[in-house]
């Protein structure tokens, strides 16, 4: 079943849509949730919540790309769950991603609202060539590993690491230019 058919089923209230989403994207969503939450049961809960939220919202806002839409809900949900688990240990993947992103953070600059930060990130991404944008997002939005990216793009891990290093440096420059501190 393709994305259009799944979305149509959702809009018409047909529960077969949930099974189709699970079949098409369940594994990827579970893995995405695991990246941020670090354990399978929390990830399962996050993905279930994603299905529920998507089921409710998709009728009023038809997504252009189903997986990106689901992943966005999944990511929001995962961060929401993290807020309730502050005392617990964060996942190893999240710690790794967080450490990498901290290299993009300038020193001694004023604090930034999350909305403004999102605007700056969108501006930064808009200026990137599609290939670089894709690599940046697949690493820091979808949480893919360096090895996965290298395999998918048919290049060496070293090239991915170098490219990500340069992208983080560029992002740091962009944040500094906007006077942002986190």
């Amino acid at each position: 079943m393709d994305d259009e058919q799944i979305i149509s089923l959702c809009i018409s209230g047909d529960e077969r849509a949930l099974a189709a989403i699970w079949e098409s994207y369940g594994g990827r969503l579970q893995r995405l949730a695991m990246t941020f939450l670090g354990n399978a049961s929390d990830a399962e809960e996050c993905v279930s919540e994603t299905y529920y939220q998507a089921w409710r919202a998709i009728r009023t806002a038809k997504p252009a790309h189903l997986y990106a839409y689901l992943a966005k809900i999944c990511r929001y949900t995962a961060f929401g769950m993290l807020d309730h688990q502050r005392a617990q240990k964060r996942s190893a993947e999240l710690v790794e991603l967080t450490a990498e992103m901290e290299q993009s953070i300038p020193d001694s600059l004023p604090d930034a609202a999350e909305e403004h930060l999102s605007e700056v990130l969108n501006h930064f991404l808009a200026a990137l060539p599609p290939e670089k944008r894709s690599i940046f997002l697949r690493r820091y939005w979808y949480g893919e590993s360096i090895a996965e990216l290298a395999a998918a793009l048919h290049c060496k891990e070293g090239r991915i690491k170098t490219l990500l290093h340069r992208l983080r440096k560029s992002l740091r420059t962009e944040l500094e230019k906007e006077g942002i501190q986190l």
């Binding site: 990106a68 990511r75 992103m101 999350e114 999102s118 894709s134 697949r138 979808y142 048919h154 986190l182």
Partner: peptide, 29 residues
């Protein structure tokens, strides 16, 4: 935690970029 804040702010990234980013992964062959 600052890096995490940046990762959180990425939730506001334009959906068209998110969709485009998936294209190479979906069709590597």
């Amino acid at each position: 935690m600052n890096g995490e804040k940046l990762l959180r702010a990425m939730n506001g990234i334009d959906e068209q970029y998110l969709a485009q980013a998936l294209e190479p992964a979906a069709k590597p062959k």
